[in-house]
Computed example of a mutant assay.
Amino acid sequence: MSGIRTLLVDNGSLEPAATLRLRGLAQALAARVGTPVEPVSLLHSSAIAPDRLGGVPAEILEPALERRLAAGAREFLLVPLFFGPSRALTEYLPERVAKLRARTPDLRVRLAPALFQADDPRLAQILADHVRATAAGWPAPWRVALVDHGSPVPAVTAVRDALAAQLAAALGPEVRVAGCCMERREGAAFDFNGPLLETLLGADAWRESAVVVAMQFLLPGRHAGPEGDVAAICQRAGAAHPRLRTRLTPLVAEHPQLVAMLADRWRTGCAAAPL
Protein backbone atom coordinates (compact mmCIF):
# COMPACT_ATOMS: atom_id res chain seq x y z
CA MET A 1 0.00 0.00 0.00
CA SER A 2 2.99 2.30 -0.37
CA GLY A 3 1.90 5.68 -1.74
CA ILE A 4 -1.80 5.09 -1.13
CA ARG A 5 -3.48 7.43 1.35
CA THR A 6 -6.14 5.85 3.56
CA LEU A 7 -9.12 7.97 4.61
CA LEU A 8 -11.71 6.83 7.15
CA VAL A 9 -14.91 8.47 5.96
CA ASP A 10 -18.15 9.12 7.85
CA ASN A 11 -21.21 11.04 6.73
CA GLY A 12 -20.35 14.05 8.88
CA SER A 13 -22.01 15.95 11.70
CA LEU A 14 -22.14 19.40 13.22
CA GLU A 15 -21.53 17.85 16.64
CA PRO A 16 -17.88 17.99 17.75
CA ALA A 17 -18.21 14.67 19.58
CA ALA A 18 -18.75 12.87 16.26
CA THR A 19 -15.57 14.25 14.69
CA LEU A 20 -13.54 13.59 17.82
CA ARG A 21 -14.74 9.98 17.92
CA LEU A 22 -13.99 9.59 14.20
CA ARG A 23 -10.43 10.76 14.89
CA GLY A 24 -10.08 8.20 17.66
CA LEU A 25 -11.25 5.43 15.36
CA ALA A 26 -8.82 6.54 12.65
CA GLN A 27 -5.93 6.37 15.12
CA ALA A 28 -7.00 2.92 16.33
CA LEU A 29 -7.38 1.66 12.75
CA ALA A 30 -3.96 3.03 11.82
CA ALA A 31 -2.39 1.15 14.71
CA ARG A 32 -4.19 -2.01 13.60
CA VAL A 33 -3.22 -1.93 9.92
CA GLY A 34 0.19 -0.30 10.25
CA THR A 35 -0.37 2.65 7.96
CA PRO A 36 -1.61 6.22 8.56
CA VAL A 37 -5.38 6.68 8.45
CA GLU A 38 -6.85 10.15 8.10
CA PRO A 39 -10.37 11.03 9.35
CA VAL A 40 -12.57 12.81 6.80
CA SER A 41 -16.32 13.43 6.59
CA LEU A 42 -18.42 13.59 3.45
CA LEU A 43 -20.22 16.74 4.59
CA HIS A 44 -21.03 19.12 7.44
CA SER A 45 -18.09 18.71 9.83
CA SER A 46 -15.95 21.51 8.40
CA ALA A 47 -18.50 23.97 9.80
CA ILE A 48 -17.48 23.09 13.38
CA ALA A 49 -15.32 25.77 14.98
CA PRO A 50 -11.77 24.41 15.29
CA ASP A 51 -11.55 25.49 18.93
CA ARG A 52 -14.21 22.87 19.66
CA LEU A 53 -11.96 20.24 18.05
CA GLY A 54 -8.75 20.84 19.90
CA GLY A 55 -7.74 23.55 17.44
CA VAL A 56 -7.62 21.14 14.47
CA PRO A 57 -10.24 21.84 11.77
CA ALA A 58 -12.36 18.97 10.51
CA GLU A 59 -12.08 18.04 6.84
CA ILE A 60 -14.73 17.12 4.31
CA LEU A 61 -14.04 14.83 1.41
CA GLU A 62 -13.86 16.88 -1.76
CA PRO A 63 -11.57 19.68 -0.48
CA ALA A 64 -9.58 17.08 1.47
CA LEU A 65 -8.86 15.18 -1.74
CA GLU A 66 -8.12 18.43 -3.59
CA ARG A 67 -5.50 19.42 -1.01
CA ARG A 68 -3.82 16.04 -1.20
CA LEU A 69 -3.89 16.06 -5.00
CA ALA A 70 -2.23 19.47 -4.98
CA ALA A 71 0.50 17.99 -2.78
CA GLY A 72 1.12 15.20 -5.30
CA ALA A 73 -0.93 12.29 -3.93
CA ARG A 74 -2.82 10.33 -6.56
CA GLU A 75 -3.98 7.07 -4.96
CA PHE A 76 -6.50 6.81 -2.15
CA LEU A 77 -8.37 4.11 -0.26
CA LEU A 78 -11.62 5.24 1.36
CA VAL A 79 -12.86 3.14 4.28
CA PRO A 80 -16.54 4.01 4.83
CA LEU A 81 -17.92 4.27 8.34
CA PHE A 82 -21.38 3.30 7.09
CA PHE A 83 -23.57 0.30 7.82
CA GLY A 84 -24.77 -0.25 4.27
CA PRO A 85 -25.22 1.10 0.72
CA SER A 86 -26.60 4.56 1.40
CA ARG A 87 -26.78 7.06 -1.43
CA ALA A 88 -23.83 8.81 0.15
CA LEU A 89 -21.73 5.84 -0.97
CA THR A 90 -23.51 4.78 -4.14
CA GLU A 91 -24.14 8.24 -5.61
CA TYR A 92 -22.61 11.23 -3.82
CA LEU A 93 -19.11 9.85 -3.29
CA PRO A 94 -18.65 8.47 -6.85
CA GLU A 95 -19.91 11.79 -8.25
CA ARG A 96 -17.31 13.72 -6.25
CA VAL A 97 -14.55 11.36 -7.38
CA ALA A 98 -15.64 11.64 -11.02
CA LYS A 99 -15.60 15.44 -10.76
CA LEU A 100 -12.05 15.41 -9.42
CA ARG A 101 -10.89 12.87 -11.99
CA ALA A 102 -12.11 15.13 -14.78
CA ARG A 103 -9.42 17.59 -13.67
CA THR A 104 -6.86 15.01 -12.54
CA PRO A 105 -7.15 11.96 -14.83
CA ASP A 106 -4.57 9.89 -12.94
CA LEU A 107 -6.56 10.04 -9.69
CA ARG A 108 -7.23 6.51 -8.40
CA VAL A 109 -9.73 5.95 -5.59
CA ARG A 110 -10.59 2.57 -4.12
CA LEU A 111 -13.63 2.13 -1.88
CA ALA A 112 -13.65 -0.51 0.85
CA PRO A 113 -16.94 -2.33 1.62
CA ALA A 114 -19.50 -0.98 4.07
CA LEU A 115 -19.59 -2.50 7.53
CA PHE A 116 -22.51 -4.90 7.09
CA GLN A 117 -21.70 -8.04 5.13
CA ALA A 118 -24.11 -10.95 5.25
CA ASP A 119 -21.35 -13.46 5.99
CA ASP A 120 -19.86 -11.44 8.86
CA PRO A 121 -21.83 -11.77 12.12
CA ARG A 122 -19.76 -9.28 14.11
CA LEU A 123 -22.12 -6.33 13.83
CA ALA A 124 -24.90 -8.43 15.33
CA GLN A 125 -22.49 -9.64 18.01
CA ILE A 126 -21.63 -6.02 18.87
CA LEU A 127 -25.32 -5.19 19.16
CA ALA A 128 -25.97 -8.31 21.24
CA ASP A 129 -23.12 -7.44 23.62
CA HIS A 130 -24.53 -3.96 24.08
CA VAL A 131 -28.08 -5.26 24.59
CA ARG A 132 -27.04 -7.79 27.23
CA ALA A 133 -25.01 -5.19 29.13
CA THR A 134 -27.83 -2.66 28.96
CA ALA A 135 -30.47 -5.16 30.13
CA ALA A 136 -28.38 -6.33 33.09
CA GLY A 137 -30.49 -6.45 36.22
CA TRP A 138 -33.83 -6.42 34.42
CA PRO A 139 -36.02 -9.45 35.13
CA ALA A 140 -37.23 -11.34 32.08
CA PRO A 141 -39.04 -10.88 29.82
CA TRP A 142 -37.77 -7.76 28.10
CA ARG A 143 -37.93 -6.65 24.49
CA VAL A 144 -35.48 -5.11 22.01
CA ALA A 145 -36.20 -2.31 19.54
CA LEU A 146 -33.37 -2.11 17.00
CA VAL A 147 -33.53 1.47 15.75
CA ASP A 148 -31.76 3.04 12.79
CA HIS A 149 -32.09 6.52 11.36
CA GLY A 150 -34.53 5.59 8.59
CA SER A 151 -33.73 5.77 4.89
CA PRO A 152 -35.45 6.27 1.53
CA VAL A 153 -33.25 3.45 0.17
CA PRO A 154 -34.74 -0.06 0.61
CA ALA A 155 -31.27 -1.66 0.60
CA VAL A 156 -30.32 0.36 3.68
CA THR A 157 -33.41 -0.77 5.58
CA ALA A 158 -32.68 -4.33 4.45
CA VAL A 159 -29.40 -4.10 6.36
CA ARG A 160 -31.26 -3.18 9.54
CA ASP A 161 -33.75 -5.98 9.05
CA ALA A 162 -30.96 -8.49 8.48
CA LEU A 163 -29.24 -7.24 11.63
CA ALA A 164 -32.52 -7.58 13.55
CA ALA A 165 -32.79 -11.22 12.46
CA GLN A 166 -29.16 -11.91 13.43
CA LEU A 167 -29.62 -10.12 16.75
CA ALA A 168 -32.74 -12.16 17.53
CA ALA A 169 -30.83 -15.35 16.83
CA ALA A 170 -27.97 -14.22 19.08
CA LEU A 171 -30.25 -13.30 21.98
CA GLY A 172 -32.42 -16.41 21.81
CA PRO A 173 -36.12 -17.15 21.40
CA GLU A 174 -37.12 -15.70 24.76
CA VAL A 175 -36.28 -12.14 23.60
CA ARG A 176 -38.57 -10.34 21.16
CA VAL A 177 -36.62 -8.19 18.68
CA ALA A 178 -38.21 -5.71 16.27
CA GLY A 179 -36.64 -3.30 13.81
CA CYS A 180 -37.81 0.31 13.65
CA CYS A 181 -36.61 3.74 12.54
CA MET A 182 -36.11 7.09 14.18
CA GLU A 183 -37.77 8.93 11.30
CA ARG A 184 -39.08 8.17 7.83
CA ARG A 185 -40.74 9.80 4.89
CA GLU A 186 -44.52 9.81 4.76
CA GLY A 187 -46.48 7.63 2.37
CA ALA A 188 -46.94 3.97 1.55
CA ALA A 189 -43.92 4.05 -0.75
CA PHE A 190 -41.72 4.20 2.35
CA ASP A 191 -43.50 1.57 4.43
CA PHE A 192 -40.46 -0.67 3.95
CA ASN A 193 -38.85 1.41 6.73
CA GLY A 194 -41.11 -0.35 9.24
CA PRO A 195 -42.60 1.40 12.23
CA LEU A 196 -41.29 4.53 13.81
CA LEU A 197 -39.64 3.94 17.18
CA GLU A 198 -42.29 6.13 18.80
CA THR A 199 -45.06 4.06 17.22
CA LEU A 200 -43.47 0.77 18.27
CA LEU A 201 -43.05 1.89 21.88
CA GLY A 202 -46.73 2.80 22.00
CA ALA A 203 -47.94 -0.50 20.53
CA ASP A 204 -49.76 -3.22 22.48
CA ALA A 205 -47.40 -5.30 24.64
CA TRP A 206 -44.54 -2.86 24.08
CA ARG A 207 -45.99 0.08 26.00
CA GLU A 208 -46.14 -1.97 29.22
CA SER A 209 -42.75 -3.63 28.79
CA ALA A 210 -39.11 -3.18 29.60
CA VAL A 211 -37.52 -2.30 26.25
CA VAL A 212 -33.84 -2.10 25.33
CA VAL A 213 -33.46 0.37 22.49
CA ALA A 214 -30.54 -1.05 20.50
CA MET A 215 -28.84 1.87 18.79
CA GLN A 216 -27.87 1.14 15.19
CA PHE A 217 -25.88 4.35 15.13
CA LEU A 218 -22.12 4.67 14.93
CA LEU A 219 -21.20 8.09 16.32
CA PRO A 220 -22.74 10.55 18.75
CA GLY A 221 -24.55 13.56 17.38
CA ARG A 222 -27.90 15.29 17.08
CA HIS A 223 -29.74 11.99 16.70
CA ALA A 224 -27.76 9.58 18.85
CA GLY A 225 -26.14 11.71 21.51
CA PRO A 226 -27.08 11.54 25.21
CA GLU A 227 -29.74 14.21 24.68
CA GLY A 228 -30.38 13.41 21.03
CA ASP A 229 -33.54 12.66 19.09
CA VAL A 230 -33.70 8.97 20.00
CA ALA A 231 -33.42 9.73 23.71
CA ALA A 232 -36.14 12.38 23.37
CA ILE A 233 -38.44 9.89 21.63
CA CYS A 234 -37.99 7.44 24.49
CA GLN A 235 -38.69 10.17 27.05
CA ARG A 236 -41.91 11.16 25.31
CA ALA A 237 -43.01 7.54 25.05
CA GLY A 238 -42.32 7.01 28.75
CA ALA A 239 -44.36 10.07 29.66
CA ALA A 240 -47.28 8.82 27.55
CA HIS A 241 -47.07 5.22 28.81
CA PRO A 242 -46.15 5.10 32.52
CA ARG A 243 -45.60 1.31 32.53
CA LEU A 244 -43.05 1.52 29.72
CA ARG A 245 -39.37 1.37 30.69
CA THR A 246 -36.60 2.01 28.18
CA ARG A 247 -32.83 1.86 28.22
CA LEU A 248 -30.59 2.88 25.31
CA THR A 249 -27.52 0.85 24.40
CA PRO A 250 -24.10 2.38 23.72
CA LEU A 251 -23.30 3.27 20.12
CA VAL A 252 -21.65 0.76 17.80
CA ALA A 253 -18.39 2.71 17.62
CA GLU A 254 -17.95 2.29 21.37
CA HIS A 255 -17.37 -1.46 20.97
CA PRO A 256 -13.71 -2.52 20.54
CA GLN A 257 -14.64 -5.11 17.91
CA LEU A 258 -15.49 -2.36 15.41
CA VAL A 259 -11.82 -1.56 14.75
CA ALA A 260 -11.13 -5.18 13.81
CA MET A 261 -14.05 -5.02 11.37
CA LEU A 262 -12.72 -1.80 9.85
CA ALA A 263 -9.30 -3.41 9.45
CA ASP A 264 -10.85 -6.29 7.52
CA ARG A 265 -12.75 -3.85 5.30
CA TRP A 266 -9.46 -1.99 4.72
CA ARG A 267 -7.78 -5.21 3.60
CA THR A 268 -10.61 -5.95 1.19
CA GLY A 269 -10.47 -2.40 -0.12
CA CYS A 270 -6.75 -2.70 -0.82
CA ALA A 271 -7.57 -5.30 -3.47
CA ALA A 272 -10.59 -3.49 -4.90
CA ALA A 273 -10.63 -2.02 -8.39
CA PRO A 274 -10.59 1.80 -8.49
CA LEU A 275 -13.88 3.60 -8.86
Rank of each mutant, 00 (worst) to 15 (best):
E174D: 15
E186G: 14
A232F: 02
V177K: 04
G172T: 12
N193I: 10
L171E: 02
A178R: 15
R222P: 00
G202C: 10
A169Y: 06
W206Q: 07
T199S: 15
V175T: 12
R222D: 13
L201H: 04
A214T: 05
V175D: 01
A224S: 14
F192Y: 06
E227C: 05
G228K: 14
E208Q: 14
P226F: 05
Q235Y: 00
G228A: 08
A237K: 07
A205F: 07
S209F: 02
G179S: 15
C181T: 14
S209Y: 01
L201T: 05
F190E: 12
D191N: 14
G225S: 07
V213P: 04
A189Y: 00
C234N: 05
L200M: 10
N193G: 11
P173R: 12
L219G: 01
A169H: 13
A205I: 01
C180I: 11
A168T: 10
C180P: 04
R222M: 12
R236F: 03
E208L: 03
D229E: 15
L167R: 06
G225F: 00
E208H: 10
M215G: 03
A188F: 05
V212P: 06
A232W: 07
R236W: 05
A205H: 13
Q235K: 13
N193A: 11
G202F: 06
G187E: 08
V212Q: 04
A178K: 14
L218Y: 00
A169I: 05
P226S: 11
L171T: 09
F192N: 02
A169L: 13
G187M: 06
R236Y: 03
V177Y: 03
H223G: 08
A170W: 10
